[in-house]
Every structure is written in structure tokens, then in C-alpha cells.
Design a protein around this nucleic acid. Sequence first.
DNA 1: ATTCCACGGGAATCGGTGGCAA
DNA 2: TTGCCACCGATTCCCGTGGAAT
Length: 370
Amino acid sequence: VPDITHHFIYPLHLTGIVIVDHQVFADDHVPDRLVHRERAVGTLSRALEPALHDQPPEDLLIHGPHGVGKTVLVRHTFERLEAKADVDYVYVRSMGRSAAGIIRAVLRHMGANPATNTPLEDLCLRLRERMTRPTVVVLDEGDDLPATALRRLGDVDLVGVIPIVHDADAWLSATEPAVRRRFRSAQLGLDPYDAEELADILDPRAEQGLRGSVDRSYLEYIGQRAEGAARTAIQTLRAAAHLADPELPIERVNVDAAYHQALSRIRRANLRSLPLHHHVVYEIVRAAGDDGVGPGTFHDAYDRVSDVVYQGREATPLSKRDRRRKLAKLDEYELIDQAENRHDTHKACDTSITSEFVDLAAAVDVPDER
DNA sequence: ATTCCACGGGAATCGGTGGCAA
DNA sequence: TTGCCACCGATTCCCGTGGAAT
């Protein structure tokens, strides 16, 4: 949440705030120019090109590691296309959604509001009815998309599908052959940036978003620390700006400290977005500290605290199977490292991140070790 | 080689909720 | 309005798989 209040309450020069434009650091900020992504913009534009002539856009599988700008690439390219042609663009965060959930999200974008229990078949019918112009459906976070969703969207004329995933090979081999054929030769991979490129990406943001200028070499340090991910680099710069003040110019802010603050902020937001069960599971893992907790011990601990933790809440404790699903989710969100096998341990990535909803210390006196 | 047990895919089940007919 | 049904999403149940210990 942007901290704007200080601007109005205190004279700027008396505060530690050097950020003058929060928007350029927001995750959904789309810059006018995508630095070092010219070729990717070209490839994507060519896939969308048929839409300019009222033809369905081509399917394209976009892949690459965290934070290399997959989503921004799509938004940026589409905004330009939209200015030129009568094309629709639907962006769906598909993580965890069923086939019906995805189709429903597309329909909602088109102005329909189908009930959650409308049959998938009906949803698809309505989708066809409403599809009157070329439409690009972007399925972000599409690593485990239900094949049904892809098949159904593929059946609709005028629709081009753009799944965004991390690992293209894994994705293709996990899906059904028909889908594989569609995307095998329609891929766009984004590589991590190097430190120089990241500095180029940070530079205009520092210019626009911060009071005063920032040394190029400092931006490069951040670039090195961010390991190829633009999102991490941008959030690190932002954290550094927060840590700076009139006494401590931004270049003197420790990059490591800023980096960790940025990571921790991202993880905190991730945890907050999850429902109660995940918080309980997370807190049990976190309570084990840096040594972690083996799967067996984890389940014992869960059983021991569950009565108290769930007391007075409508939710009830989970089966072992579902605890494993929650652990997998937490791993996905980079909140824990899940045990690889039964002799390994689950570990919290950052034990300083705590749940706002669940407090185990208040729930149990002393967890006795067995 | 055998045993132990967590893992994780998939089927079955449950609870909630629109839509619809009486 | 009421009662029923179909459907979804969440969860549990079931079970084959496989890594590590013995």
C-alpha cells in the first residue's frame, strides 16, 4: 500500500521518503518502453497480428522464470495492439482455477455474470454466443492449467490462447497430445536479464520515481543481487529508497538489506492472501525454526495444536492428505521449502514472517518433543 | 530384499447455492 | 415460496509409487 499520507502531513525535506512516484514501483506498472525485450515484443506482435484483419490471433506459449517480465510483456504489447484494432484482451490469473472457473472468468470479462454452479457446457455455449470479435485470452500462472480449459477455449473461433508458464518442457509433457501439438512450435521463451540490463530497467524508474538521482553503479549492484529477475530488482530499489533518508543517501543503503526487505514484503503479501488452513500449516513449520520439521513430527504437531487453534472457528482440522496439499501450496508461494522425502524436513524460508491470523504460542503452552 | 511411510494423482463425497418447477 | 436437482469447489478417501533405512 503506497504510503502517501506523509506527503501531506510533513514537508518532504523533513521525511525519509525519497519516493515521489509510487506507481513506477508497482507490480502492475507497465512502462512505455520495454527495455531489452524488443525481440519478444516482435514475436508476440506477429502472433497477434491476424487480429488486425479480423482473424483469430495465434496461440502462443510464453515461458520463463520468475520476474522476467512475462506478464508485463503481454500487457505492454496488447495495449499497443488495442489502440490499432478492434481486439479484445482477457487476462486471467489461472492458478488454482478449474476449467469452469477459467471460462467463467472470461465470461465475466465480457460482461456476463454466470453463477458458480453453471455447467461447464453452458458456459462454453455462452462464450461462443458472445464471441463477436478477435479475442486474446491470456492465462497467467498457467503452470497447471486443466487441459479441458485449453481444449474448450481452442474450440471457440476468434480466440487465441496465450498461456504463461515457468517451464515450457514440463508443461508440454504434462498436458495432452492435442494441446502439445498446438503449442510445440508456438513458444516464446524469456531469459533472465543480466546485471547491466537490469540496471537499464531500473534507471528510468529511479529517474521518474525517486527524488534525486541514483548512481548507475548502485543500480548495477542491485541488478547483480536480483539474479535476473526484474521484479526483484525493482522491489529492491524501492526498499532501498524506503531505507534511505536525508542522512543516509540511497547509495549508502546496504543492497543486501534492501533485497531482504523486498523479499520479505513479497512473502508477507503472499501469506496474507492465503486462507486460514495455510496459516496454521505455515505457523507449525515456522515454529520449528531453521532446523525444520520432518513430515512425521509435523503431523504430530498439527494434531497436537489443531484442537485449540481451530476452536471457535468455523473451519475444522485437515486430513493428512490435505495438509500435504497446503504444504505444496506454501512451497509454491516460496514461504516454505517442502521436504523432498520423508527423511527431509519442511523449513520456513524466512522465519521472521509470521501469520497475522494464527498464533501458536497463544494456542499451546509448551509443545513437548517426542 | 524387505519394510516403512510420505507422496501425490484421482475418485468419491460433502456442503453450499443458483435455477426451476410445482 | 418451497423443495428439489445439478453443479461447483473443497476436502477426504484410496491406493500405487518410490526413496531411505534396516
